[in-house]
C-alpha cells in the first residue's frame, strides 16, 4: 500500500500508546473487573497490528521484532507453568494460590488474588506475541517458489 495518507500515519502513531495502555489496564485489573489475560493480550496485540496496517511491516517490526515475539511467546507459557509447579514447593498442591497466603490483601485491591495477577500478566504477554505473529504470518510472509523458504516481502 504505497499510497498512505499523512493523516492515518500520524494518527496511528498517536493512538497506539493509548491502546497499549488500555490493554495493560485490562490485564492488571483482571481479577477485579471483567477482562484478564486473554482479552488484554488481544488488545495489546491490536496496538502493534495498527502499526502494521497503517504504516507497513517495517514500522511494526521495529516495535516488536520477529525473534523477540517468538521468545516472548514461549517464555510467557513457561512462566505460567513454573508458577503452577512452584505451588508444589510452597503448599504441596499443584497450581495452588500460594501468594495469597503469603501476601493477603483487602478485597478489590490490586494485590489481593495472589498468583492470579502474575498468571494474567504471563498470559497477556503470550497472547500478544501469538496474535501478532499470526497476523504477521498471514499477511506479510510469502513463499519464494525457487527456494521454498519463507521470506518477508513488502505488504
Amino acid at each position: 500500500m504505497k499510497n498512505r495518507s499523512l493523516i492515518t500515519v500520524v494518527i496511528s502513531r498517536w493512538v497506539s500508546p493509548f491502546i497499549f495502555l488500555y490493554g495493560i489496564y485490562i490485564i492488571l485489573y483482571g481479577h477485579i473487573s471483567p477482562g484478564g489475560g486473554f482479552p488484554g493480550g488481544v488488545i495489546l496485540a491490536c496496538s502493534f497490528i495498527l502499526a502494521l496496517l497503517a504504516r507497513g511491516k517495517n514500522a511494526a517490526l521495529k516495535r516488536l521484532p520477529y525473534g523477540l515475539a517468538k521468545k516472548l511467546d514461549a517464555s510467557g507459557a513457561l512462566v505460567f507453568l513454573s508458577l503452577a509447579l512452584s505451588g508444589i514447593f510452597f503448599t504441596g498442591v499443584f497450581f495452588s494460590n500460594f501468594l495469597q497466603k503469603l501476601m493477603p490483601g483487602k478485597p478489590l485491591q490490586l494485590i489481593s488474588g495472589g498468583t492470579i495477577l502474575i498468571i494474567n500478566i504471563a498470559i497477556g504477554v503470550k497472547i500478544c506475541a501469538s496474535v501478532f505473529l499470526i497476523i504477521l504470518f498471514i499477511s506479510v510472509l510469502r513463499i519464494r517458489k525457487d527456494k521454498e523458504i519463507q521470506t518477508m516481502e513488502e505488504n
Binding site: 517468538k70 521468545k71 511467546d73 514461549a74 517464555s75 507459557a77 513457561l78 507453568l81 509447579l85
Partner: peptide, 10 residues
C-alpha cells in the same frame, strides 16, 4: 510434556 514443549520452543 507441556514444559518440554515450551522449553523446546525457545
Amino acid at each position: 510434556p507441556l514444559g518440554t514443549g515450551f522449553i523446546t520452543a525457545l
